[in-house]
Nucleic acid binder design. Structure first.
Lengths: 256, 256
DNA sequence: CCTGTCGGTTCATTATATACACCAGTGTTT
DNA sequence: AAACACTGGTGTATATAATGAACCGACAGG
């Protein structure tokens, strides 16, 4: 594997449960030799992607990421546009809403607004959403560039729950359904007890660049709630696409 | 040079003036062969650090950065804490305020709040602030870990204006002055006509981890304005340090 | 038609990354 | 106290992965 790719994969070991990681632990997690990991961390630290706590000698994501993030937001506003839309969406539906954009192979969650309820789905910040196993992923893939659809179908499809589509035929049917409806649903395909409803966000080229989604506990899902969510999502997704400078293609129609 | 380091240096060519860059242009700017740059971009795209516009084939910073940024903010809130403080600081002083944190060799600007005035200093988003040539850099370096001070003094000091301190003795005096005063001033040492006033932000270990600064056009700087800025900065910096979980060391006293 | 530039690919050469062994420091357990 | 199991970090021979010149097809302008 390419060295740069390997080094950057180290970043993926940092998440909500592992905000700081020691050298040996990171080497163990990644299966890469300690000496190599250390050199990679040093290189990434020089770019500000990671930084080392001088006291504990543990590593964490670096402030350079915040700088790059600001830089990207200045050129292509996404977070700034999406957050207020997510807030209204969560308010209107009473369930947490989240937005994700293509980042590498999968969708990276870049915005989450929780709902006020106590029993609600928890969406981890920065969670990666697999394209075949989430409502967002299916909604995105269905309206992404055709090459991507073929590529996703060719990949091995990991099972996250018993309901995860793991064969190309099933996934292909889901994608067709999403294209017909204009949105995608995921009934516990990624996490048990969680039902996801998602609509694509479009880029300037008329192809999907991400998704907007609402997640509810299956126990609370009623036809009425689903209808309300869809109505709110449709407006929110259109607004989000326009706000980011995207273009909703003519063929994209929401079943009302 | 290490391959990973070289690859990540490519990210630094993206700024406000160059939000998207083509392959050949990036190769030219970096002095690295086209083929190598392409492979590096591919690896970084797999991690979501960059992405390619499918239409124009040009490259830009990727959405994965937004994801990582959220992840870091969830673990170590900085932007979220600093922005409201910056807003109040800009409001109180009438001049733009900015915050920066250590990112690699220099300070990376991670938050800027402009003032309402028409004639004001413009701070580019994501700008890197050299440690020896800016008020923020001097304030940070003066209160950073001693090893860092030695390292900075050992580096060659680039001149940005005629007033930039380029020899160790001058810089060393500036650092001593900053340590005595508790803040640093920069009279056109980075940009002509710009006067910067900065105070350090402290980490949990009692050493500086960044800086909070106000920039004014030299023409407008009066003793009165400087006093107002210093008063506002002192409160803001203390608040910011505490908000990020840092610890203001006992020896750090602000001359009132 | 010629020319310059673009993004991208190929492949022999070589420079770079790798992993083993090792070191020093620290905290636990015996 | 002594042995042990960790930790973060270093040095170096070996092998792997990075490199860059040449090349390709496409496109734009003169």
């Amino acid at each position: 594997m390419r060295t740069v790719e390997k080094a950057l994969k180290l970043l993926d070991f940092f998440d909500e449960r592992h905000p700081v990681i020691g050298l040996s632990a990171l080497a163990r997690m990644s299966g890469i030799d300690k000496a190599t990991v250390l050199r990679m961390l040093g290189d990434m630290a020089a770019a500000g992607l990671v930084e080392q706590d001088p006291a504990s000698r543990e590593w964490r994501l670096g402030a350079g990421i915040l700088r790059l993030s600001r830089l990207r937001e200045a050129a292509f506003p996404a977070t700034g546009v999406l957050n207020p839309i997510l807030a209204r969406l969560a308010e209107a539906t009473g369930e947490p809403a989240h937005a994700s954009l293509r980042a590498g192979r999968d969708l990276g969650t870049i915005g989450v607004v929780e709902s006020a309820r106590s029993n609600r789905v928890y969406i981890e910040p920065g969670l990666m959403l697999p394209l075949h196993a989430t409502a967002s992923g299916v909604a995105y893939t269905a309206f992404a560039r055709p090459e991507l659809r073929a590529e996703v179908l060719a990949r091995p499809l990991a099972a996250f729950t018993g309901a995860t589509p793991t064969d190309g035929a099933t996934l292909s049917a889901r994608l067709e359904e999403a294209r017909a409806l204009g949105y995608a649903c995921a009934d516990q395909t990624f996490e048990d007890e969680v039902f996801g409803i998602a609509m694509p966000l479009f880029g300037p080229d008329g192809f999907a660049c991400g998704a907007l989604a609402v997640a509810t506990p299956v126990a609370r899902l009623t036809p009425d709630l689903q209808a309300r969510v869809l109505a709110a999502l449709a407006g929110a997704a259109r607004e989000a696409t326009q706000g980011m400078g995207g273009h909703v293609p003519d063929h994209h129609r929401i079943a009302a």
